[in-house]
Design a binder for these strands. Sequence first.
DNA 1: CTGTTAGCGCTTTCAT
DNA 2: ATGAAAGCGCTAACAG
Lengths: 351, 351
Amino acid sequence: MPLSSGSGGGPVAASEPGRREASGATLRDLAAAAGVSVATASRAFSRPEKVDTSTRERILRLAAELKYVPNRAAQALITGRTMSLGLVVPDLNNPFYGGLIKGAQDLARSLGRSVLIADTDEDPDVELSIVEHLAQRTDAVVLCSSRMPDADLERANRLCPVVLVNREHAGVPAVTFDSDSGVREAAVHLRALGHRRVGYVGGPVLSFSDAARSASLGQVFPEHGLEVVLLGNHEPTFEGGRRAADRVLLADVTAVMVYNDVMAMGLVGRLLGYGLEIPRELSVIGWDDIEFSEMFTPALTTIRVPRAEAGRAAVEYLESALTGHPIAPPRLETRLVFRQTTARAHRRRAE
Amino acid sequence: MPLSSGSGGGPVAASEPGRREASGATLRDLAAAAGVSVATASRAFSRPEKVDTSTRERILRLAAELKYVPNRAAQALITGRTMSLGLVVPDLNNPFYGGLIKGAQDLARSLGRSVLIADTDEDPDVELSIVEHLAQRTDAVVLCSSRMPDADLERANRLCPVVLVNREHAGVPAVTFDSDSGVREAAVHLRALGHRRVGYVGGPVLSFSDAARSASLGQVFPEHGLEVVLLGNHEPTFEGGRRAADRVLLADVTAVMVYNDVMAMGLVGRLLGYGLEIPRELSVIGWDDIEFSEMFTPALTTIRVPRAEAGRAAVEYLESALTGHPIAPPRLETRLVFRQTTARAHRRRAE
DNA sequence: CTGTTAGCGCTTTCAT
DNA sequence: ATGAAAGCGCTAACAG
């Protein structure tokens, strides 16, 4: 079974040197071996029903024997589809995005697509150029928690099909998280525990989710008889949470909601260091439910946002859009996860 | 500036419907606009020095105007290179790999390459098929902490250029971590604090790094007058660490090394729950120095393994191999990072 | 320095 | 049901 002996064909290019196994058999080799035309060989894969059963089986068998694997570049060139998707996240180190990617990747693979990942390092200025890069090698891209200015977003959306996750912009499809559902549960929980004044330790000023979260709080909490005290905007990091500690202490609240779990951990850590008892003296609720929230001591009560599901939904939407029958990207519910940082309100005394 | 008005050429295919901007201009359009042949237009990009300065500038200017972007699929088809790299990790949720990917990605992008990520879900059986998938769309792949059987590894290595990270196998290049350096620092540290008997809470039985770590311990610690007590193999998870707690208590040691940080946190959490004082009654040293180690309370003393650097080194090696001048992949040093889980030895009493 | 020529490997009408 | 032919957009000899 010589590989490219080109039965009847024209001149055969010298096989590239230094290549490894399996880079040999082309569709032409396969066709020759099966005694059919390349067209038929091709159809045996792409339109099996249009090929006589016995011929098809012969072709498929031979394909396995010759270890024929279709050349993706050639397919991409002719079909115009790469069968890859791009996925842009702000920070791969952030465990939130790990879960998201995993969800996206899972579905993508089962659809025969690969996922190209890009990390913006939290820098909104490089996002657009990353999308440009990706647009050349993928069929569509998902943009997670994008901080691009609206104009860039629109430009990106013109470069290739795009779906947003955790950000909204008119005219661009988006998988979003419904803060209200989780916040409502938090409100009921806190109220049941006797809290009245609840602080909110905010995230970055320009963050879409911070806006969504604080808006949700401002809307829902009062409806449940809870007063919300805004405690400023902070870096969405452990250190940012730590630095918010004094502000929290000063605020005369019995509970705080925090922009995300990492900050919540920083806050709790610092407060514990001050000798405060948590949750006895202060209840804390984080946001995201990253893996470490339950490894932390005390384990964080938090609002879970379904990140793997978001990744999946984004890919699902893109697939539907690519095949011409776009579905509506979902708005995903969030939920309160009760752990150890919330308890009955005890007013601290100025002793 | 009509896009594909094909000046002198043959029949022009109908432009694809439904595509977005910038998918218009081809090299031929560009060449026509500049009044040169496609060959020259092509060279203006790939071998600028072989094109007359003024023509080149004209071409480049026109390229920008027409928003010409080269078609990667066509390039890949003819050159045989995709300019992408594959990267396989066991679990994207594991923060260890986030850092690794980030390092790889950074360098890759600056080399003009994209990175295709795949997650095996810790399942060694799918690894090979993932490599097969990747081999079709990338030029080379990096395999992180692979658990593939040796035979599969060799097969993978034949499919496309491969570099291992945190695993070794004869004949396959590998970026590795030198446990000894970190372990030696740990030995000195522990010895200085008066410890004599140190436990080792192991990771998964078949794990390459567990073997490396425990071997390193068995070798280095005795040289420093430290006795090592093996405390079994455990799941490399938070829960796995928790479950090792009783075993540690029973072992009559004043310090333990733990296979990784996540397990160490589980262990410490449980022990704290038992009422043990850490580090007063037991010193604990983790492994990896994941981000959360310092957010944990008490912050984990641990052995840092330079993961971003490993990612970078892997890509660097691959690039060198791809360009025909393979460098030797490095063995990266590990270091002790002192935080709050180690202190002077105090023998617990059976009171 | 520039143009001509010949494909890379595959899909897809259009005939047969 | 199958084959012939025409390229997808680009690069790489090889001639000028």
